[in-house]
Nucleic acid binder design. Sequence first.
DNA 1: ATTTATGTTCTCGTCTCCGAAACGCCGGTA
DNA 2: TACCGGCGTTTCGGAGACGAGAACATAAAT
Lengths: 250, 250
Amino acid sequence: MSEERVRATETSIRALEGLVELDGEAGVTELATHLSIAKSTVYKHLRTLESKGFVVQYGDRYRIGLRTLEFGGYARRYDGVYDTARPEVDRLAEETGELANLMFEEGGRGVYVHTASGEDAVDIDTQTGRHAHLHSTGVGKAILATLPDERIETIVDVHGLPRATPHTITAETELFEEIDAIRSEGVAYDREECVEGMFCIARPLSTPGRRPAAISVTGPVSRVATGGTEERIRTALERAGNVIELNLTA
Amino acid sequence: MSEERVRATETSIRALEGLVELDGEAGVTELATHLSIAKSTVYKHLRTLESKGFVVQYGDRYRIGLRTLEFGGYARRYDGVYDTARPEVDRLAEETGELANLMFEEGGRGVYVHTASGEDAVDIDTQTGRHAHLHSTGVGKAILATLPDERIETIVDVHGLPRATPHTITAETELFEEIDAIRSEGVAYDREECVEGMFCIARPLSTPGRRPAAISVTGPVSRVATGGTEERIRTALERAGNVIELNLTA
DNA sequence: ATTTATGTTCTCGTCTCCGAAACGCCGGTA
DNA sequence: TACCGGCGTTTCGGAGACGAGAACATAAAT
């Protein structure tokens, strides 16, 4: 396995990342100093990216282009799980009034590929495409529960178990106990392990031959963690999951 | 304005495009022959893209990675129009039961940045991130109506007026007449100009200082183009547009 | 065992990418 | 008006990476 890479490609991608780091918009000089790369180099990369729509020029400033969204659309739709699950996630948000999410696993991390806001949903920053660690979110742990143990171990080895809040699971043994519980009960909970004050109930999706995935409903502890509501959400999740799994095999 | 480009970056992007052209998935050799590029070159680019998450490896095959979706998310959210409009587009779909869309203009073309399906929505292929010509869709023409005439002319010069169906507007004078009508009436119609059998009603959005945008509702001619329904949709579009514009200035 | 496909590695000559510095342009300033 | 400091853009040369082709490894099919 050669470690040789195409340097220019990496530079271009660093430029894209730099634009994000600079709040999505930057001039040539600003980006060059941020990346510690020669101005002329950054300039040529930006022009190249611009000609392909990966970057857009507004006056003297550059932003990420919507062409990336086009590729993202393909990546997301690839195996049909998204198309199948999306309407159910939307309905989940409507039924519960909270924030509903669909997550895929890729490269050992979780990616929010769809989110839907219900009537009372918190305005938390779960933008589409956001990546998250699997061990510190409800959906993430639900996904882990669908993976074989060796895979989980590899993921933990590569990405570690970084702490997000005081409640985050950071011990491997504890994580595996939790995952066993999720496997037997079919539900995963995130008790302020990702964001303080937020509670998340998730359900793994059985997607044989396709990408690992899970769905969840998120809301403030005060609302979601109370007995009645929690059970209502669990039932809604179970129903949605069943519908999705049924439609996937059909 | 130098025409010099970074060749390696272009090659990497060609690799991504090639993956899409090969139905989203390919092996090294397959992609290399498709692109007429040496196998080893394609290999190194794929490995580089993979290390950055732009491509994912499943066994011996490569696909577009969800990292692209992350950048797409930033591009889409940039100026707040998306966040403001999205809930209204969702409601639009629910109210009308049809397919509702939000489009941005970028580089003279239209990009579907959000779509929502109502109860009876046709299952047409409007995936998020898809690019379309502005002159042949209802939303596109609505966007054109918000642009100054010189800009429209530049766009027509660059992208032409390619025909999509027998009803597509292909004459510049006719296009400008239509745009004048849209400007005075505040509504744009797509009478099977993009897809045969499909009718689309759109409304331009006033987004001063932000990206040009428009919203629309699409459905089969038989349902959407009839008097009563058409008026209902027009009213819903008008309301949604007003709410969005209000929230944008607030 | 042989064949044939694949992904991966190797090697090398050419071309290109990178960096530094110069240029042109614009807005603010005395 | 002349100056200055900032920007994006262009120029230019040398180091070095990229791209092509062929060799190698591996796996599946025959």
